[in-house]
Design a protein around this nucleic acid. Sequence first.
DNA 1: TTGAAAGCGATACCAG
DNA 2: CTGGTATCGCTTTCAA
Lengths: 342, 342
Amino acid sequence: MNLKELSKQLNLSQTTVSRALNGYPEVNEATRKRVTEAARKYRYRPNVRARTLATGKSMSIGHIIPMSKQNELVNMVFSDFIAGAGLVYADHGYNMTLTIVKDDDELEAYRGFAERGAVDGVIVQAPTREDRRISFLADLDIPFVVHGRASQIRAPYGWLDVNNKRAIQTATKHLLSLGHHRIAMLNGLETLDFAVRRRDGYLAALREANIPPDDSLMRSNDMSEPNGYEAAMELLALKAPPTAFVASSMILALGVKRAIEENNLEMGKDVSVICFDDDISYLPNAGDTPLFTALRSSVRAAGARCASLLIERINKPDAPLPNELWEAELVHGASTGPGPNA
Amino acid sequence: MNLKELSKQLNLSQTTVSRALNGYPEVNEATRKRVTEAARKYRYRPNVRARTLATGKSMSIGHIIPMSKQNELVNMVFSDFIAGAGLVYADHGYNMTLTIVKDDDELEAYRGFAERGAVDGVIVQAPTREDRRISFLADLDIPFVVHGRASQIRAPYGWLDVNNKRAIQTATKHLLSLGHHRIAMLNGLETLDFAVRRRDGYLAALREANIPPDDSLMRSNDMSEPNGYEAAMELLALKAPPTAFVASSMILALGVKRAIEENNLEMGKDVSVICFDDDISYLPNAGDTPLFTALRSSVRAAGARCASLLIERINKPDAPLPNELWEAELVHGASTGPGPNA
DNA sequence: TTGAAAGCGATACCAG
DNA sequence: CTGGTATCGCTTTCAA
């Protein structure tokens, strides 16, 4: 049953029927009622293909997932992020168009989306520091929102990112409030944008507490379990070892945990550990722990928020770019314990 | 740039330009060349919205993912399956339309797809024994392929399923060839379709080897790690314990492994274990083991094959239903060892 | 408040 | 081999 047939049944014009169904105000309530009832009776559903052609909107958001040759597996971060976004899309009547491409075809896939009018907007995940996609999409003139930031890129663009500084600052303050003064900071490589922000958070917390930072307690390296382990082993071997650790990712914290156990210390009692993370790229299989679950749920929430921002942008293309510092829930380590004074 | 403008530039009709671009044979090669060059020059891309309306095909495959309230996480099986399918879609010019719905909205979402003409076909994952979706989709008259089978459903439908019998038969034969005669079989609940098939495979292998089945070596229960563990503990405590185990899923095998270790036995030396699995629904986080990786890759292959079958079905709606017994690679346990005679 | 008719941007039939 | 024109099913002016 299409609009033409339905309107014939009702002895009304397609125009009126369409208006009645789409909630236009200028329709007589009586006719609107007739129309909606007939529509239900005949199970009329507007054809999306026709509708999208007429309106110029596809009511669909594109996600392009590059499938690296090195890492054949689709990173799990995508499934949670997408789950969060997908529910929001559904709520707003949008579909999600997902394309899986080989890495080299990624930019072309975006162009395809844009030029053929296949989607109304796209979400960019896991940007690099000077991500090529951003200016590419800007040129294509298609609404998009980036999850994360590419700090090397000057031109403004819409993004959602966690408040890295604040998160680590909060974590550090928490340890301070437990009475720790020698707090180690295991960070990612500080050439990375977010790592610098996290370092700032750590330093800010110490400053507030009037504790001078101690360079020997701060490490910066690739985020991996072995790196976390090695750094923690060194730190625990100091003459004045730290009583607590702030880790800049779950994977580093896992390394710290191993080091603590190997030193026959008890985590949460002898040594406190707290970590912050907002991504699971580096954690393909961390098990079914509450920590991991919390992280996944946080990623999902980010997906939902990104989706909202994008829909907002699509509907108001002239509004300011939707930039947002996202207050991810603090995902923290197993137990921080009572602190050294207890 | 749209078709109208392009044809105006070329002083040709839209018809001719369209035909030239779509490879119709009745076009002069010279004009075709002119057209394709102009198309490249002006970066012409046919608008998908218009094309889908004109052709009646949306060039898109629907996947509906129910997001259970109990299990908030999107099961990983979906990401691997979808990755496999997605690459095939891309190869054939299809997109994937993904909708995430609350469980209760699932059937309505399928209806929406079908009646609005949003997708050309759908894939049904994880069917239950008497899955409602199957007859529902058949009524909707939309091409679909089921990954797995719903054995309670009589009406024919397209599916792809692993050869459960053959897989377990092969596994059992392998153990027999190593010299094992007392081989335990840990199965899923034998009210389930696939579990019965697997049991048949086990029995068939024994029969071929003229070994009478021993009921005391066969267990059937929900597939979970604790159930695998308990069954194996009991079996290992027999006066004549089995020297090998066939497990009907990875998760059961993990339980067996624990039991073996608790008995201070060595897996692959004192006791051989082999398992078959084709799904990871029950294995949310099995770690980064080669076994798990192999299983994921197998799931991905199944996704790709399902996608091919569906595309086939869409293109030849009158061909016989695409049913296929899928020979999944045998995913086997850590080590089967040299066998008891070595 | 309603309707006729013109798009939207392609494809495809039927002539020439 | 090429072109005119109807068509896909809906939305959206513009008139009445």
